[in-house]
Simulated scan of single mutants.
Amino acid sequence: MKSVATELVIDAPPERVWAALADFGSYGAWNPCLRRIDGEAGPGQSLRIAIRFGFLPPILFRARIDRFRRNELLGWRAVFLFGLLEGRHWFELHPLDAGKTRFVHAETFSGVLASLFIALFSGVIRTSYEAANFALKAIVEQK
């Protein structure tokens, strides 16, 4: 398995961060990486996702929520290229003192193409996730 993981501290409680993450309909207005998510934030829910990594063209795919704990954890699993690549994408919210949240945004890739995929794209994926993290921080902290 190959992973990309990012994190930052958001000056808001996990409940407020969760509200933005679970509002899939608003992603297009603020998220430069996850441009659109169609579906509901709930255990086992099917999603249709449009993602954009930097200069690469948008990627459209289906996923299923496989990690869900309100105000703590939201994640999904997607399979690409006939099962040659699998992605498990997730967000973790960890409460900190003074009403802050340590936000983790990560993905683990597995399958025959995982090593090649990470070798080619880990930099642009990390940069895209960091941009999404800072955008989330900005919208949550302005409320």
Score class of each variant (00 low, 15 high):
residue 3 S to K: 14
residue 5 A to G: 09
residue 7 E to G: 10
residue 8 L to P: 05
residue 8 L to N: 07
residue 10 I to Y: 00
residue 11 D to T: 01
residue 12 A to I: 00
residue 12 A to T: 01
residue 13 P to I: 10
residue 13 P to A: 15
residue 16 R to V: 06
residue 16 R to D: 12
residue 17 V to G: 00
residue 17 V to M: 03
residue 17 V to A: 02
residue 18 W to R: 00
residue 19 A to I: 03
residue 21 L to T: 01
residue 21 L to Q: 01
residue 22 A to P: 00
residue 22 A to E: 01
residue 25 G to A: 14
residue 25 G to W: 08
residue 25 G to Y: 07
residue 26 S to K: 13
residue 27 Y to K: 09
residue 29 A to N: 09
residue 30 W to K: 12
residue 31 N to T: 07
residue 33 C to R: 06
residue 33 C to G: 07
residue 34 L to V: 03
residue 34 L to Y: 04
residue 34 L to P: 01
residue 36 R to N: 11
residue 37 I to T: 14
residue 38 D to K: 12
residue 38 D to R: 13
residue 40 E to I: 10
residue 41 A to R: 02
residue 41 A to N: 03
residue 43 P to K: 15
residue 43 P to Q: 15
residue 44 G to R: 06
residue 45 Q to A: 09
residue 46 S to E: 14
residue 46 S to W: 08
residue 48 R to I: 09
residue 49 I to A: 02
residue 49 I to G: 03
residue 49 I to L: 08
residue 52 R to D: 05
residue 52 R to T: 06
residue 53 F to K: 11
residue 53 F to M: 14
residue 54 G to R: 14
residue 55 F to P: 10
residue 55 F to S: 15
residue 55 F to R: 15
residue 55 F to L: 13
residue 57 P to H: 14
residue 58 P to F: 11
residue 59 I to C: 08
residue 59 I to W: 13
residue 61 F to E: 13
residue 62 R to D: 15
residue 64 R to L: 04
residue 64 R to M: 09
residue 65 I to L: 03
residue 66 D to L: 03
residue 67 R to Y: 02
residue 70 R to W: 03
residue 70 R to L: 03
residue 71 N to G: 05
residue 71 N to M: 10
residue 71 N to P: 02
residue 72 E to A: 14
residue 73 L to N: 08
residue 75 G to W: 02
residue 76 W to N: 02
residue 78 A to N: 07
residue 78 A to V: 11
residue 79 V to I: 11
residue 79 V to E: 15
residue 81 L to A: 15
residue 81 L to N: 12
residue 82 F to H: 08
residue 86 E to D: 06
residue 88 R to E: 11
residue 90 W to E: 08
residue 93 L to I: 09
residue 93 L to D: 04
residue 93 L to P: 11
residue 93 L to A: 08
residue 93 L to E: 03
residue 93 L to S: 06
residue 94 H to I: 14
residue 94 H to F: 10
residue 94 H to K: 12
residue 94 H to A: 12
residue 96 L to K: 00
residue 97 D to N: 13
residue 98 A to F: 03
residue 99 G to D: 00
residue 99 G to T: 02
residue 103 F to P: 02
residue 104 V to T: 11
residue 104 V to K: 12
residue 104 V to C: 13
residue 106 A to N: 11
residue 107 E to R: 13
residue 108 T to R: 15
residue 108 T to D: 15
residue 109 F to V: 09
residue 109 F to P: 01
residue 111 G to N: 10
residue 114 A to H: 11
residue 115 S to R: 05
residue 116 L to H: 07
residue 116 L to A: 08
residue 116 L to T: 10
residue 117 F to R: 01
residue 118 I to T: 10
residue 119 A to V: 05
residue 121 F to Q: 10
residue 122 S to F: 09
residue 123 G to M: 02
residue 123 G to C: 02
residue 124 V to I: 15
residue 125 I to D: 02
residue 125 I to C: 02
residue 127 T to E: 13
residue 128 S to R: 05
residue 129 Y to V: 04
residue 130 E to I: 05
residue 132 A to Q: 08
residue 132 A to E: 03
residue 133 N to K: 00
residue 133 N to H: 01
residue 134 F to M: 06
residue 134 F to L: 05
residue 136 L to D: 07
residue 137 K to L: 07
residue 138 A to H: 13
residue 140 V to R: 00
residue 142 Q to V: 14
